[in-house]
Every structure is written in structure tokens, then in C-alpha cells.
Design a protein around this nucleic acid. Sequence first.
RNA 1: GGUCCCAUCGUCUAACGGCUAGGACGGCACGCUUUCAAUGUGCAAACCGGGGUUCGAUUCCCCGUGGGACCA
Length: 467
Amino acid sequence: MQIRTRIAPSPTGTLHIGTARTALFSWLFARQNKGEFVLRIEDTDLERSDPRFEKDIIDGLRWLGIDWDNKTPYRQSERLQLYEGYLKKLLDEKKVFYCPHSEEDLAREREEQMGRKEAPRHVCEFREGGVETGIIRFKNDFNGDITFNDMIRGEINFAATLLGDFSLAKNLKAPLYNFAVVIDDYEMQISHVIRGEDHIPNTPKQILIQRALNIPAPRYAHLPLILGKDRSKMSKRDGATSINEYKKDGYVADALINFIALLGWHGREDREIFTREELVMEFSFERVQKGGAVFDIDKLNWMNKEYVKLMDQQNIAREASDFLPEEWREIIKNNEKLWMRIIDLVKERIVKFGDVPEYVDYFFQMPFYPKEMLAWKGKQSHSDILRHLNKINELADTIAENDFTKENLEKELMPYAEKEGRGDVLWPFRVSLCGKQYSPGPFEIAAVLGKSEVLTRVKSAMALLSD
RNA sequence: GGUCCCAUCGUCUAACGGCUAGGACGGCACGCUUUCAAUGUGCAAACCGGGGUUCGAUUCCCCGUGGGACCA
């Protein structure tokens, strides 16, 4: 059998983590089985759909490297005549009907049913036909159980009668979700429908429609949801939900893929790092979790760092430079060697590339910091600090400009530091150079900055203290 | 309110009736260190509850409880 899967996002919002993971699993399954993967934009809701969201979704999938086989994505808005044809057919066969009830009528009916602790549903008195206005509903006469075998959860049953005469379309040219999906999945010959578990309740309706149309049902796999901190469906409140925000923050696409794959899936070994190819090989629905997974940014950060560590310095330098402000980028464009030396110092602390500017700012501009920061462990007298900085200034000045290396700095300064206390001497020195609580060591920084800049910064630290 | 889904450390998870319940993130401690990071070592941390089934249940069944989703 030809395997064909799809991702069918609505352009009513950006590409979020949950959709990306559904896309990934569908893609992995298709690629693993030498099948096809289809992108379909479900934009039947014209009011809420926006081309900008469609672009965001497409950009996001591209960035993640999840490619689809239909060159131009399908758009439901361009397939309206198709749905209309099927709707007319069902109308002719009296399997669907027009329901003229108003929203208010329906709402009232629901209220009453809920008051009686009944399932809210609408069984219409116009189900045998007779009117030509209102929405189009499915004439649901089935009173048995609808059963389907989910690839992740096994058998799932629904009592069909509780569904009532559910809605299919607002009119002939405006199909609703459940109807359009069934038609499209059939027309596109989707063999496996892989989607979030929030669609489980839609499945029996879709199966009923398939039966009415006498078309085959695909296999279903309902993925567990990705949850926010509060264990409810992940939303804006849980921080970045759009994939493109992770791109902007400088995450590595492969790291995000790896991380998302592990949200609800796990290999058979205690392994966490998988290449894309390995994921294609290893993925299986038997090993997909049933319960929802909380999105943990700390673990993503760890994983991203692992991926950065795997990159060579050239790539890190190139990637990181994209996140620098314009002026700094100009500087390194003319001094690539400088940039490589800087990256060499900070590369192992990069969590995500968006953080790089704050790690390297002092290489491009004078640091600003409160003078208290110059005190080792926060308790060192100004006079001691001044004395040390003065000595550092003196010793550093004895090194020739061309010999201003890490090794020579160490040779000149360490004896003094050892004598006076390493932290007492080296901390103020380091802060005077970078103005930061955390940074690479002072000798490394100094060697990159160069003699005159180092002397300037040490002196300005002294001036700051004397204020 | 109805229906459906789910349930192992704080988080992601392993275990497919039989071990001191394993790994990862995070946390903590120690080592290394001028700081942080990195790294090394170690520690703490979980089977939702109650009934069955069984020689034996985290695992199978039932009932609770809890969480979630969908419907409007």
C-alpha cells in the first residue's frame, strides 16, 4: 500500500509546537515508508484565516526541514466546488438535509439538554427534508457504536446516537471542518491520518460521513497533546509557541526537531540525541506515549547547546554573526580573525545564538558596570582594588604591544596574583575588561582586546572607583 | 453538563508479571577553577488510591480519584 500522510494546519495562527510535532511525526512516518507527505492549508474559515499565518507556517516547516511532496500546498478555499459536488450528491440521496434552526434555538435546546444531564445534540425535525435554507446537516440514523482502531490507543468507541444530526456545511459553498477533511483525505488518498488527540471526538463523525459516501476510511493515529506548565494545552501564555520565534532566538533547527521528537516519543535505548536520518529509521507509533507532555524549555536549551557543541567553529562563527547588531557585523566583516578569536572564547557557553551579542558586547564597546562589581565576592575595599589595578596596569605596560598574549600576561601577572590572592587581583581585572559577572578569563579577554584597550579599561576602572 | 482520552521522580521518559523501578533535563553537594560555563564524581527525587486476577503486580481487569480534550 502506498503510504501517504499529511499535515493540515489552519492559517488562523502561527505554526506552533504542537502542529510542528504532528507534522514531524507524519513526515517521519511517510519518509520511513517511502511514502508521500502532503501539506494542505485548511482555510475554509475565511474570517479567521490570514495569508500572513500561511506564510508563517510554510516558513516554519521549511526552516525545520520538513518538506512536502506537493509542490504547491493544497488550499481548501480553492477546492470549494469539489465539496459542493459531494454535498449535492448527499442531498440527492437524502443523506443530508437543510436545518433552518437559528443559533438561538440551538443554544436553548443545548441548555435544556445539559440541564437534564443529557448529551448536547441536535436531532432535527427537518431531517427528512422540506426546507432549502439554513445549514446542512448529516442525517444520523446510525444507532450502534462507531469503532475505530487507533494506532496509538487501540480501540475507541463512540455511541453514534449521541452525536445527533451534526453539521456539515454552512451552505453548499461553505463546508465545515469535518466534511472538508473527509473529502480531502479521500481525494488525496491519505492512508494515515496523524493528528492531535483533540481530534478524537471528530473521528466518529468523519467515519459516519465516509460511510454515507461509501469511501474507505484511513488509519488513524492520535498523538498526545503538548502541554504548558499548567498541564493544559500549550498556549501563548506558555512563552514562545510559534516555531519562528525559536528561529529568531537562534535555536538550531535540528535541535528543535530532536527535542520535539522526544515529546511523546522515545527510542528503545536510553539515547536522546538523534539525527534526522536516525529519527526516520527509528520512529514507530508503538513507542509513542499516550499521555500529554509538558514542554520544558530547560531541556530544549540543554539540547540546543549539545547541537552547538557538535558544530565546528567556522559554522558557529557564521551562525552567530547573523545575530549581531549591524555595526558589530560591519566590524567583523573587515576583521574575520578577530571574530574567530572572540568566538573561540565564548563558543562553549552558547545556549542559543540569540544570546551571543550579550556574551560579546564588551569586545565592541566599553563596558558599563556599577563599581561595586569590581569587588571580589562583593567585599573588597576600594583601596585594595585600586592598588591591584594599579599594579596590573604597571605590569601589563611592561609587555610590548606585539607580545600581548595570554601566555605573557600570565607570566607577568600571575606571580603578583598568587602573592596577593588570585581572586583579589584577577576578579577586578576581569570586571574592568568586560563589566560582567560571568565571562571568559581575564587573560584570554585581554589578549583579544590588545594592549592599549586593556590599559584604557583598567584606568577607567580606577577612575570609576575614585569618583 | 455529556462524551472521549490519559495517569512512573518537579519535567521528558524506560520497564511489555518476577531485580536496590533505569536514563535524561533541572536541583543539590563535592572536585577542578579568577567568575560563569564546560567537565568529573556523588546525592536527593516517582509507580494516584482501593479492590480483584496471580505464587507474584508499576505492569492485566474493575471501581474510585485526579488531569486533559472535545461539544456550545
